[in-house]
Amino acid sequence: MDLVHQADHAWVLNVQRKLYQWSQNYPTEAYRELWNWLTDLRNLREAWRRVAQNKGKRTPGIDGITAGSIRQRIG
C-alpha cells in the first residue's frame, strides 16, 4: 500500500468514526459537514480504489460503464 492510499484510508476511517460519534451524541442534528466530507478528494480516491478492486469491477454500472473503461479513457 502506498503512502497516499494509507493516508486516504486513515482519513476516511477517521471521518467514519466522527460521524458515528456525532450520530450517537446528537441523533436529531443535521450533518452540516457531510457534503464536504463526501466530496473531499481523499474520500473520492478511496472510493475509487474500493470500486476498482472489488469483484464487480468488470460489471457496468447504471450508466453502462465499467471501472476498466474509465481507466482506459481517463487514466
Rank of each mutant, 00 (worst) to 15 (best):
L3F: 04
Q6D: 12
A7H: 08
D8Q: 06
D8H: 10
H9T: 14
W11D: 00
W11I: 00
W11M: 04
V12M: 05
L13W: 00
L13G: 07
N14L: 04
V15Y: 01
Q16N: 14
K18W: 06
Q21K: 04
W22P: 00
S23A: 08
N25V: 04
Y26F: 11
T28E: 13
E29L: 01
Y31C: 00
R32D: 02
E33I: 04
L34Y: 03
W35Q: 07
N36V: 02
W37T: 06
W37N: 13
L38T: 09
L38A: 13
L38M: 15
R42K: 14
N43R: 08
L44T: 07
E46I: 01
A47N: 10
R50T: 07
R50P: 01
R50V: 08
A52P: 02
A52K: 10
Q53S: 15
N54V: 03
K55S: 10
K55Y: 09
K55H: 09
G56E: 04
K57F: 09
R58G: 15
R58V: 05
T59E: 13
T59Q: 11
T59S: 12
P60W: 15
G61Q: 07
D63E: 14
G64Q: 12
I65G: 11
A67V: 15
A67T: 15
G68A: 14
G68T: 09
I70K: 10
Q72D: 15
I74F: 14
I74P: 03
